[in-house]
């Protein structure tokens, strides 16, 4: 199969490319340079919204597109974030239908449901995407997910897959949860101890690979570990924690974000306040991938250095 990966220059993009090139022909597209790629991977350094991107589709018959080129950095001004994520995806969808690509895989995020006190304990794939309600910065990501969903309904001949993983954690990952676990002293919200799931980046790669199976389509929540209280995770990490009353934490983080002292936007606090447990039964049944990494393995790189082996 010839697979096009958007956002190949990112940390995840490279890992996906390296994994897929064993069985497939991989083409990359990214506006950033992507040095040190294996020679059998062709990289096109072009913005997906620009005209030359169409040539990539025109010149090579592409069988599948994996859309990873979505920016999660909320420091980028809202207009730019919107233009690059939403317009980029719109252009990509146009090419996918115009050049008869058989398969489209979007790596969305479990964040699109939104963390809130009103959520049921388990969030399945049919729950409305409410994230922008409390976290306006995330609306571009929600818009991308919705757009691909409606694409799924309009194009029955194209196998569209939307993956919504829970918190992805791993030694190479630099998202909010991984950065949170890397802190030397970990702040928590006083009196809140939500249930969370984690997903190791290696397991995500295996699930992404499995979603390429011919005939497979649909929306899938992904998670690696069973839900566990945040406090147990912090106990395994063995790092000092400081409980902060929620309103104070929010006020402090808002200021810190404004003056660029932190990389966590204040609404991220909802993720350590409310349950965000995804119902992953559909993925288990259809993708058929059992996660390999246990909670202890996932957390190993983040643990305090002077810790003895963890025993419960």
């Amino acid at each position: 199969m010839r697979i096009l990966i958007t956002g190949i220059a990112g940390r995840l993009g490279r890992r996906v490319a390296n994994r897929l090139r064993r069985n497939h022909e991989v083409i990359g597209i990214d506006r950033r340079p992507c040095p040190a790629l294996p020679t059998d991977i062709v990289h096109h350094r072009v913005d997906i919204r620009r005209r030359p991107a169409e040539d990539v589709f025109r010149h090579a018959k592409i069988d599948a597109v994996i859309h990873l080129g979505i920016i999660h950095n909320f420091r980028i001004p809202a207009e730019q974030l919107h233009a690059r994520n939403v317009m980029g995806t719109e252009t990509l969808l146009k090419y996918v239908s115009k050049y008869n690509v058989k398969k489209l895989v979007l790596l969305s995020s479990g964040d699109v449901y939104g963390a809130s006190a009103e959520n049921s304990q388990f969030i399945d794939e049919d729950v409305p995407l409410m994230a922008s309600q409390r976290f306006p910065e995330i609306r571009a990501l929600v818009a991308v997910d919705r757009m691909v969903q409606s694409f799924f309904w309009r194009h029955h001949d194209i196998e569209t897959v939307i993956l919504r993983p829970t918190f992805i954690v791993g030694p190479n990952v630099r998202n909010a949860p991984s950065k949170y676990f890397r802190l030397r002293v970990i702040p928590t919200l006083m009196g809140f101890d939500p249930m969370v799931q984690l997903l190791h980046e290696d397991d995500l790669l295996r699930m992404l690979d499995a979603s390429l199976k011919p005939g497979l389509r649909g929306v899938f929540n992904l998670a690696g570990t069973a839900p566990v209280p945040l406090s147990r995770i912090l106990k395994i990490l063995g790092k000092p924690t400081i409980p902060v009353p929620a309103p104070i934490a929010r006020a402090l983080l808002e200021r810190a974000w404004k003056y660029r002292l932190t990389s966590f936007p204040a609404p991220e606090l909802d993720h350590i306040r409310y349950n965000t447990v995804l119902d992953t039964s559909r993925a288990k049944e259809v993708l058929g991938i059992e996660p390999e990494r246990s909670l202890y393995e996932i957390l190993e790189p983040f643990r305090a250095e002077d810790q003895a082996d963890y025993t419960d």
Binding site: F122, M195, V228, R232, N275
Partner: peptide, 10 residues
């Protein structure tokens, strides 16, 4: 109960 002593609802 899951492997961590809590059921999926906490």
């Amino acid at each position: 109960l899951g492997p961590y002593g809590v059921d999926p609802f906490g």
